[in-house]
């Protein structure tokens, strides 16, 4: 048994010294811009990335799409991002709180909630208040995630009390419960409905005026001391340009 512990101590020692040395031998890749962006930006940013590569020969744009909170955690823990586009001010705050933002983040788009139903809207859902009907199985996002926080804000503003059958951990998961037919309705973003119908019509989207009371803002910021900070600023310009606006609007975002 003693030998086991000696070996363990040895292994831990080696690991610790290895950690201490860190990664010194990394050579900067020739012009690769790394963008961390919220999953809902996948389609529009991929398109903008292709345009950016055409406009700037020799530059490769690499994307890391995911839940904004995960991306923020990755950046705080040393993730190699040059530019970060988050789906909520709260997740952006994780990064700026650690002084990792180069300047103040700007809100570049907003996204609003939409009711999503099965194709043809078989339950005839027309308003947000219809979702309080106990005969309708509704899925929403959990209040911990931005789409759930927005949904809760609408509930508070309207006084409508929705009893969901499930509070999903992310918006795609919410959408999935409707596209598979297991829930009658869900609350997702306009962009998710458009994305779901891109290949073939799979769901119906029902807009409701109260959604305007809980717009979700998307902030974007260049990361401080990023290896490709200049490229990141250029990409940010593209996002804010007329061409960028067009792509984002086509995906369902409201450009601010």
């Amino acid at each position: 048994m003693k030998r086991f512990w000696v070996a363990i101590v040895a292994v831990f020692g080696v690991l610790l010294t290895a950690c201490g040395r860190g990664s010194t031998g990394s050579t900067p890749e020739a012009k690769t811009l790394t963008v961390f962006a919220a999953a809902s930006l996948t389609e529009s940013f991929t398109e903008l990335g292709k345009k950016f590569e055409t406009d700037n020969p020799g530059v490769t744009v690499k994307f890391n799409f995911g839940a904004s909170s995960d991306l923020a955690q990755q950046i705080v823990n040393g993730g190699p991002a040059d530019l970060f586009a988050a789906a909520s001010p709260a997740t952006m705050k994780t990064v700026t709180d650690k002084a990792l933002g180069d300047g103040t983040p700007v809100d570049f788009v907003t996204n609003e909630l939409q009711i999503v139903t099965a194709p043809g809207n078989p339950k005839g859902i027309k308003t947000f208040a219809d979702l309080a009907n106990p005969a309708i199985k509704v899925v929403v996002c959990a209040p911990q995630v931005p789409c759930g926080a927005a949904e809760l804000a609408v509930e508070k503003a309207t006084g409508v009390d929705i009893k969901p059958v499930s509070e999903e951990p992310d918006v795609k998961s919410t959408l999935g419960k409707v596209t598979t037919g297991n829930a009658d309705a869900g609350l997702v973003y306009v962009t998710d409905v458009l994305a779901a119908n891109k290949a073939k019509p799979t769901v119906d989207g029902v807009s409701f005026p109260e959604a305007k009371q809980a717009l979700n803002k998307y902030p974007i910021v260049v990361i401080k001391n990023a290896p490709q900070a200049d490229l990141a600023r250029k990409f940010l310009e593209l996002v804010r340009s007329e061409a960028g606006k067009k792509v984002l609007q086509a995906a369902g975002f409201v450009v601010t």
């Binding site: 839940a67 911990q144 995630v145 059958v165 499930s166 509070e167 951990p169 419960k177």
Partner: peptide, 19 residues
């Protein structure tokens, strides 16, 4: 799915809280 008291087990809560 995930609903407190009905389907939200401990791992699901962990996954949600980390957001």
């Amino acid at each position: 799915g995930s609903l407190q008291g009905t389907t939200r087990t401990l791992p699901l809560l962990v996954y949600l809280e980390r957001e």
